[in-house]
C-alpha cells in the first residue's frame, strides 16, 4: 500500500488526462491531423498569463482572446521580458478551464514544453500553435488557457518533459 501511495501519482495523471480533472494539458506536442474544420461553431479561446510573485518578468499574451473554429490551426504568441539584471530560467505551466476542455485543447508547438531562459533585460516572443479538437462537447463555448510562469533558476529542475516521461 506504501507503493500504492506513490502509484496514485501516475494513476492520477492518467485519470486527469482522460477525464480532464485538473485542467492540465498534455506536455508534449501533438500532431496536427488535417481535421475537417467545423465552420459552424465558434469557440472563444481566452489567454491568461500569470507570473509568480517573486519573478521579475513581464509576461503577457499577444491577444486576450481569439475566436476559432474547431479543427482550425491557430498561431499566437506571448510576450516575455526579463526586467532584472540576472539571467532567469522560467517554466510556464498551462492550465485550461473548464478542466474537461483540456483534453480537446491540442498544442502542436508551445513554449511551455521547454524551459525558457531569458538573459538580463532581454525579451522574447514565445510562440503557441494550437487547434481545438472538433469533438469538443457542445456545452463548452469558451476555453480559458492560463499560463503561470515560474522562476526555476535555482531549482535545478530537469525539463518538465523529461520528468513527465520519467513518471
Amino acid at each position: 500500500m506504501f507503493g500504492f501511495g506513490f502509484a496514485l501519482v501516475p494513476l492520477y495523471d492518467v485519470l486527469c488526462d482522460q477525464l480532464g480533472i485538473n485542467g492540465k494539458t498534455q506536455n508534449s506536442a501533438s500532431q496536427y491531423i488535417d481535421n475537417e474544420i467545423d465552420k459552424s461553431r465558434l469557440i472563444t479561446v481566452e489567454f491568461i498569463s500569470q507570473v509568480q510573485n517573486n519573478m521579475p518578468w513581464e509576461f503577457i499574451p499577444q491577444v486576450n482572446r481569439l475566436q476559432v473554429h474547431p479543427g482550425e490551426l491557430v498561431r499566437t504568441h506571448f510576450k516575455a521580458k526579463n526586467l532584472s539584471n540576472l539571467n532567469i530560467v522560467g517554466q510556464a505551466i498551462p492550465s485550461v478551464s473548464p478542466g474537461r476542455g483540456a483534453a480537446y485543447f491540442n498544442k502542436t508547438e508551445c513554449f511551455c514544453f521547454n524551459q525558457q531562459t531569458l538573459a538580463a533585460k532581454s525579451s522574447a516572443d514565445l510562440p503557441l500553435i494550437f487547434y481545438v479538437d472538433p469533438a469538443l462537447p457542445d456545452n463548452i463555448s469558451t476555453l480559458t488557457l492560463s499560463y503561470t510562469l515560474y522562476n526555476i533558476t535555482d531549482k535545478g529542475y530537469v525539463d518538465v518533459l523529461e520528468q513527465g516521461a520519467a513518471k
Binding site: 507570473v51 509568480q52 510573485n53 517573486n54 519573478m55 521579475p56 526586467l83 532584472s84 533558476t153 535555482d154
Partner: peptide, 15 residues
C-alpha cells in the same frame, strides 16, 4: 524589495 527572493515568501514588490 523590487524583485523578491525566489523560493521564499518574499515577493517582487515592483508589481
Amino acid at each position: 524589495v523590487i524583485n523578491g527572493k525566489p523560493g521564499t515568501a518574499m515577493q517582487a514588490f515592483n508589481k
